[in-house]
C-alpha cells in the first residue's frame, strides 16, 4: 500500500519539476492535459478488468484499438458520413472487438501464468496482420469503393485518412470557456460516465467474480465459478472498451494514421495507469484518472524541458519513452518480486 502512494508523488514531483523548467504556461498545459484525458481516458480504463481478473497488464488493447480503426475505415470505404457513420463504425468495431476479445480470452486460458507476454506478442502479431490486410487487401480482395483513400498504385490504403466528417461531432456540444481554459463539458462527462460505469461494473456480481478469479483461480473453481468463462468475459469487456476508447481518440483527433495510430496505445495506457498508483494486481478507476493527469502532463512538458535544460529536444523525447517503459519495467520488477513467495 505504501508503494501505491509513492509512485504518484514521484510523478507529481517530476511533472512539477519539468513544468518549471519547460517554462510553459499552466493554462496551456491544463488544456492539453484535458484533451489527453478525453482522448486516452477510456483506453486506460480498458486495462482495469484484466488486472482485476488476475491477468496482469493487457497489452492486447492494441487489438481493441485496431478494431476501432477497422470500424472507421469501413464507414469511410462505404462513404457514410456524419453521426450515422459514427454509429455504424461503432457497431462494426464493437462486434469485431467482441469476437477478437473472445479469441484472446480463449488463447489466454491456454497460457495461464504467462498472460502478459502472450498479449504483448498478440498485439504485435495483430498489428502485422492488420497492416498486411489494408496494405495489400484494399483494391484486391476488398473492393475499393472509395477511390480517395486508395494509394496511387491501385492497391492499399493511404497512410493518412481524413476523419473530418466525424471530427468534433461530440466535442462541440456544451463547450465552456473559462479564461484561457476550454472545457468540452460533454466529452468530460462522457469519460466520467465511463469511469462511473467501470466502478459500477466492478461492484456487480460479475465484477466480484473477476476479483475472486484474480485472487485465486483454484479457490474460485472450488466456489463453483467457471474460471475459464469469466476470464474470457474479462477479455471481451477489455477489448470492447479499448475499441470504444480508440473510437473516441480518433474522432477527437479527426485524422486516422492508418498504419501507426494504434501502436503504443498499450504502452502509454499501461504506463499512465501505473503512474496513478495502480499495481499489476490491483487497479482502481481513481488510479486511472490520476495517472492520466500525471503521466500526460509529464509527457507534454518533457520535450520543452529537455530543450531548456540540455539544449536538445531529442533528450526530452527519449526521456518520456524511458519513463513510459521504465514505469512498466519497475512495476513488473516490484510487483512480480513480491509475488514470488506466493507462487513457489
Amino acid at each position: 500500500m505504501k508503494n501505491n502512494r509513492l509512485v504518484p508523488i514521484f510523478f507529481l514531483l517530476l511533472s512539477a519539476f519539468s513544468l518549471y523548467f519547460s517554462g510553459m504556461g499552466s493554462g496551456f498545459v491544463l488544456n492539453e492535459v484535458l484533451t489527453r484525458f478525453i482522448r486516452n481516458g477510456v483506453l486506460v480504463l480498458a486495462m482495469l478488468v484484466p488486472i482485476a481478473a488476475g491477468m496482469g497488464i493487457n497489452f492486447a488493447v492494441t487489438i481493441g484499438a485496431i478494431c476501432a480503426q477497422i470500424g472507421f475505415l469501413s464507414v469511410i470505404i462505404l462513404q457514410k458520413p456524419g453521426l450515422t457513420g459514427l454509429f455504424l463504425a461503432m457497431l462494426i468495431s464493437v462486434l469485431i472487438a467482441a469476437g477478437l476479445g473472445y479469441m484472446i480470452g480463449k488463447v489466454l486460458n491456454r497460457v495461464k501464468g504467462r498472460e502478459m507476454i502472450t498479449t504483448f506478442i498478440m498485439g504485435f502479431l495483430a498489428d502485422g496482420i492488420y497492416q498486411f490486410i489494408f496494405l495489400t487487401g484494399y483494391g484486391t480482395v476488398i473492393k475499393p469503393l472509395n477511390k480517395e483513400i486508395l494509394l496511387s498504385r491501385g492497391v492499399g490504403i493511404r497512410n493518412m485518412v481524413d476523419l473530418v466528417s466525424y471530427r468534433n461531432l461530440m466535442d462541440e456540444i456544451w463547450r465552456l470557456q473559462i479564461g484561457s481554459i476550454e472545457l468540452p463539458i460533454f466529452m468530460i462527462l462522457l469519460i466520467l460516465f465511463f469511469c462511473l460505469a467501470m466502478t459500477y461494473l466492478m461492484n456487480t456480481r460479475l465484477g466480484q467474480h473477476f476479483k475472486i478469479v484474480g485472487e485465486d483461480m483454484e479457490k474460485a473453481a472450488a466456489l463453483g465459478l467457471d474460471v475459464d468463462r469469466i476470464r474470457i468475459q474479462a477479455m471481451i469487456i477489455s477489448t470492447v472498451i479499448a475499441c470504444l476508447g480508440q473510437l473516441i481518440f480518433l474522432q477527437n483527433m479527426g485524422m486516422l494514421n492508418v498504419y501507426t495510430a494504434h501502436q503504443n496505445s498499450d504502452i502509454f495506457s499501461a504506463a499512465a495507469l501505473l503512474a496513478g498508483g495502480a499495481t499489476i494486481k490491483q487497479a482502481r478507476v481513481r488510479n486511472a484518472i490520476l495517472g492520466i493527469f500525471l503521466f500526460h502532463s509529464l509527457f507534454i512538458v518533457s520535450p520543452q524541458a529537455g530543450q531548456n535544460l540540455f539544449g536538445n529536444p531529442a533528450l526530452g523525447e527519449y526521456f518520456r519513452s524511458c519513463i513510459a517503459y521504465g514505469t512498466i519495467a519497475l512495476a513488473l520488477i516490484f510487483n512480480l518480486r513480491s509475488g514470488r513467495f506466493g507462487k513457489q
Binding site: L315, Y318, C322, I328, R337, R340, K343, Q344
Partner: peptide, 23 residues
C-alpha cells in the same frame, strides 16, 4: 528476484535500457 517471470520483465528491462542508453 523474478524467477519464472523473466520473459515479460526482460522485455521491459530491455526497452528501458535502450532509452536510458539514448541519453
Amino acid at each position: 528476484h523474478l524467477k519464472g517471470r523473466e520473459e515479460i520483465a526482460g522485455i521491459f528491462i530491455g526497452f528501458s535500457t535502450v532509452y536510458l542508453m539514448c541519453f
